[in-house]
Design a protein around this nucleic acid. Structure first.
Lengths: 221, 221
DNA sequence: GGTCATTGTTAACGGTGTCAACATGAGGCA
DNA sequence: TGCCTCATGTTGACACCGTTAACAATGACC
């Protein structure tokens, strides 16, 4: 995601040299911080330039658009989410019945998804805000080919392999599983349930929701 | 939602009288149209004023804020969604096994939710965009007390009453069910799946997702 | 018929994204 | 070494946005 790592410059101190040396990365980093704190609407080009200590129009040497900058941030946010989920899955003990392990991994992934959204609301909302891709007309790579989506598919495959889920139920299961966690996350953060549930209610609701989802995937008809 | 219905004025023709006579409703209507076509970001105060044929600052006689106008539109969008769902539920034939009817009604509601989102993307996104409530600090009425949410609860209650769902599974079921449809809708409209699924794929994914949800609610463990 | 609150208006401010024109300086080539 | 060039910054300007303050028209009520 970063462009070229070799050159590095202190990010905060007002620079002395005319050329920044690493402006693109500096702006991206600063924009990510803004997004983390305030969501997609908070990443405003002029503010980013101000923070990096550069004129607003300098951004146009590195980003075609203000939206291109936001798109970059979006990528970072999605990466960050994927890392959190990956770590959670990896932390599941792999001993015991393979079916149990596979199901536990799926549940850990789902839990991590929602946890990330709650703990990093700004980044999460940025990860899923609408953005036109700079070059292309819409999303360049179909999202169904993204790494995170493929990983989810892998988890579901293992559940089928271990006999916990009928194979004929497999197609479309990624989207079904993703729908639940995505919807639950968005109800809690930036949605109608925001600030309406106590800590306990929130934990309870999440558990109930994931129970339903897992049961829906693996239970007999 | 409308303020007072008695006075009515042609909405599009450039008015002749100094006072509009029904400006608040006219602006709301115009804003709804903008939201329908372009989502929440498309409802911009100056454009609304322009369309109604009035100066931008006239809006401040009727709305405290640009956000207050958007909030009004949000209300309309939520009402519209609720009406669509209500109609779909009412259209389910009520004869046959009560359990079957109750489950069919829930499924119809879920389907209508997603259908509304797909067919009215702009309105749907506006219905769930973040807005500060004009007067209060955050959402005034807890959303869990909104009519639509209560109606969903009623559907789930009937499923329990007819013995299709264990009573101990009832608490939290609204949020679980809502999470699925909300997430699925948002993946399809304004989300990562937008424009990546064909008509058939979309219908298939929706069916699979709702299968999972219903099974998760009513299947035996 | 005069008074006055209501509901419009214009002018202006600060903020935003963006473009055009100009300035700087780092790197390659003589 | 010195120059040229081009990538990378800068300033200035424009249009658009939300919002406020000050002013004007209207219509309702005594």
């Amino acid at each position: 995601m970063r462009h070229d790592e070799q050159v590095s410059t202190p990010k905060t101190t007002p620079r002395t040299r005319y050329h920044h040396g690493d402006l693109r990365n500096a702006m991206t980093d600063s924009a990510v911080e803004l997004a983390r704190a305030g969501g997609p609407d908070a990443v405003v080009l002029r503010e980013v330039a101000r923070r990096v200590g550069v004129s607003a129009t300098a951004a146009y040497r590195h980003f075609s658009d203000a939206e291109a900058l936001l798109y970059e941030v979006k990528g970072h946010a999605l990466e960050s989410l994927a890392r959190s989920i990956g770590a959670a899955v990896a932390a599941v003990p792999a001993d015991g019945d393979p079916g149990d392990v596979a199901v536990a991994q799926l549940r850990a992934a789902a839990d991590a998804y929602i946890e990330f959204a709650v703990n990093n609301a700004g980044l999460f909302m940025t990860a899923f805000c609408l953005t036109k891709v700079p070059g292309q007309q819409f999303e360049g790579v179909p999202f169904t080919e993204a790494a995170a989506f493929q990983a989810l598919g892998g988890l579901l495959d293992r559940i089928v392999e271990t006999g916990r889920m009928p194979a004929e139920r497999r197609p479309g299961a990624e989207i079904a599983a993703w729908s639940v966690v995505h919807g639950h996350a968005l109800l809690l953060v930036g949605g109608p349930l925001e600030r309406h549930l106590s800590e306990e209610e929130q934990a309870y609701a999440r558990e109930r929701t994931l129970d339903m989802a897992i049961r829906g995937l693996i239970a007999a008809d």
